[in-house]
Design a protein around this nucleic acid. Structure first.
Length: 269
DNA sequence: TCACAGGCTAGAG
DNA sequence: CTCTAGCCTGTG
């Protein structure tokens, strides 16, 4: 157990920002919000799930020790990104809508999640709702011992099971599993590419279009400049930015802004 | 019944 | 190149 000060982190906001689908809200501890976060990626056999409790706005208790924090969760919570800089950019602007969005969701951080899990999750996310996405991901994990199987471990025979509820997305997942199994270096190669290169590579997968590719770039590859446009963001852009969104002003951090806007759109109507 | 959910593919124009 | 019908399925 360790106590930490983490600025710009709100567990509820991050959990409901639509980037992670396996956080679990546990019973409050002494009135404080607690989440269980499964460990992601190949390191998941090394580290246990994390339990994190928020004590105050920026104070937390974590179930891991200092070494696990340093080697894994520090990166996961994106501690190297300067959110103060983003805050200042918003503060210095005259964009009332983004200021309001930030006021509501300033505790959202862009998590550094496992690339492979993000690919599967956002293949499932298309034309889908959060409840069903969460259930599908959970069902896949449950059938593989409680974690997201690596491509070479993935049991494709389970995909047609109606209780997983993948629908027409089954062939998309099959394609990804097969391709990442045969091109076994591609996951690593993706992490070494530029945003543009990885985006184009992802588009070559069946079932991955512009929106899903950008989500994978933002949440799986941590390309903060990626700006996924889904139905909600599309609506919001035409509603509040009829003469165009100021991408230039937010160059390099547009993905974080997108998260504030998305969260605000869903939690303030 | 019908629209909608963090869209994409395939086919037509 | 752009445009869009149809798609699995659960929910309100």
């Amino acid at each position: 157990m360790i106590n930490l000060t983490i600025r710009h982190l709100d567990l509820k906001q991050t959990a409901e920002s639509g980037q992670c689908f396996r956080w679990k809200r546990l019973n409050d501890v002494d009135g404080h919000m607690t989440y269980s976060i499964p460990s992601f990626g190949p390191k998941q056999r090394e580290f246990k799930a994390l339990t994190i409790t928020s004590l105050s706005e920026d104070e937390f208790i974590l179930s891991c020790d200092q070494r696990e924090w340093n080697t894994y969760w520090y990166t996961y919570f994106d501690m190297d990104t300067d959110y103060d800089r983003v805050e200042k950019k918003i503060y210095d602007s005259d964009d009332r809508h983004i200021k309001d969005a930030f006021a509501l969701g300033s505790g959202i951080r862009i998590l550094k999640q496992d690339l492979w899990e993000i690919i599967i999750t956002f293949l499932i996310s298309q034309n889908n709702n959060i409840t069903r996405i969460t259930r599908s991901v959970e069902e896949i994990c449950n059938r593989h011992g409680g974690y997201m199987p690596r491509p070479e471990e993935f049991d494709l025979s389970i995909l047609d099971d109606k209780s997983i509820g993948l629908g027409y997305r089954v062939p998309y997942i099959e394609y990804a599993v097969k391709r990442f199994t045969s091109e076994y270096e591609l996951l690593t190669e993706l992490t070494q590419m530029s945003y543009e290169e990885s985006y184009e590579t992802l588009l070559s997968f069946t079932g991955i279009g512009p929106k899903v590719a950008n989500c994978i770039c933002l949440f799986g590859l941590h390309h903060i400049e990626a700006f996924p446009i889904d139905t909600h963001v599309k609506q919001l852009l035409t509603k509040y930015y009829p003469q165009g969104f100021p991408y230039k002003y937010y160059e390099g951090v547009a993905g974080i802004i997108q998260q504030y806007l998305f969260y605000y759109e869903l939690h303030n109507r």
